[in-house]
Amino acid sequence: MRRVRLLVPGNIRHSSGGNVYNAHLVDGLKALGEDVEVTAVEGAWPDASAHERRRLGSLLGAWEPGDRPGPVVVDGLIAVGAADELEFAAKAGRQTWILVHMPLPDTSLAASLRREARALRSATGVICTSSTAATTLAARGLEGVLVALPGTSAAALASGSDPLHLVAVAALLPNKDQLLLLEALAGIRDLPWTASLVGSDSADPTYAEAVRGAIIRLGLTDRVSVRGELSGQTLDAEWDRADLSLLMSQAEAYGMVVTESLARGIPAVVRDGTGAVEALAAGSPAGSEAPDAGGPPALPGAAVVLGTDPAPLESALRTWLTDPGLRARWHDAALAARTRLPGWDVTARTVLDAIALKAPGN
């Protein structure tokens, strides 16, 4: 039996989208009969030390002559910090794949973008977890990028709440922009609603403290709760009481929390211009079309154009809260999308087929 080795960053300990994807991928590959070995690679990825990078090189077989059977799949967060080691692994004839959850932002330092390009070009193949990420890499000149979209696990329909309940499931991090969300919520205090922020408050303690301070400053302590990172039945209960899901990330390659929301029949509002728009359309007949102002196909929510001004988000939420017809359309579209979301078995098969396509002898 062939063994697939997956190298994941050991320094990301909160429930990130990448971690969730990796875990489901492993389960899916095992369900397909594959022997999978997962190694958490310690290091300050992507800015690991020379010692940490050399240890990665050993895991890749970069320094050792001879055959090492089976492909190695390297999480992109590790890969972008280890261009040298991946190039040596390629010269040693290793079959190394890179799984890119999110490319470096275009605003990254030129040297960082060059290292990313070197790492990706040295790989046997590159698999992106969203079409948005693949398009970004293609625009940078990388050819032959494959896409294995995240799957979605079946979930019970949400019951909702009275008053309406909003949930934002994301670690408390500057990129997730909970501060802007709170500013928007403060503008609709005249309407009945409650909200929960669900996600790690230890990934960036300084930002988490700023979020808690904003809740107090904006007079939202009776409306907004910070729940921390939840799992299992506690997380399921939080989803069950939700009527609308919010993801305001400034940058997002996909946004699996959006499809997790749709799997429960909960519509979502996301930031326009991010990969979360792709996730919002995942269950629509039109595939990855962005939502528009009510034209077909009906999509389960909206993508709001946002900068630093919370007013557009405040307006969108006010409209949803006060327009029963709009709420019904979004909810119906979410129910329809729920039946069309692909499972994680599709993701695993896509990755496995990609690896097999470039296996030695093919």
Rank of each mutant, 00 (worst) to 15 (best):
E260Q: 11
S15G: 14
A82M: 06
D67E: 15
L146V: 05
K358Q: 13
K30F: 04
L29Y: 03
L181Q: 06
R318E: 11
V226M: 04
Y254A: 06
A44F: 10
T274W: 08
T347H: 00
E260W: 03
G125C: 07
A279R: 07
A89L: 04
D47L: 03
H331V: 15
T347K: 01
L280N: 04
I216R: 15
V304D: 11
L113V: 05
H51F: 15
A23T: 10
G255Y: 00
W45Q: 07
L56Y: 08
T132W: 09
G125E: 06
D204C: 14
L120V: 01
A210R: 14
T206A: 14
T124G: 05
E278Q: 11
V346H: 12
Y21G: 12
T129V: 12
V270E: 02
E87N: 11
P69A: 06
I188Y: 09
L146P: 10
T107I: 13
I266W: 01
S108M: 02
W239R: 02
D67N: 13
L77V: 02
D222L: 00
D75S: 01
I98E: 02
P312W: 11
E143D: 13
A31W: 08
L59R: 04
V36P: 11
L244C: 03
S159Q: 04
K30P: 10
A237W: 03
L321C: 08
G18P: 09
S225K: 07
A268H: 00
D106M: 01
L113M: 04
R5N: 03
G307K: 04
L326S: 11
L99M: 07
A168I: 12
Q178M: 04
E87S: 15
A23H: 10
L99Y: 01
P267F: 13
V269C: 05
S122V: 06
V26M: 09
I12P: 07
A290W: 05
L326P: 11
E87F: 07
R338M: 12
A50F: 08
R271S: 06
F88D: 13
D353V: 05
D106I: 09
V4F: 03
E229K: 04
L164D: 08
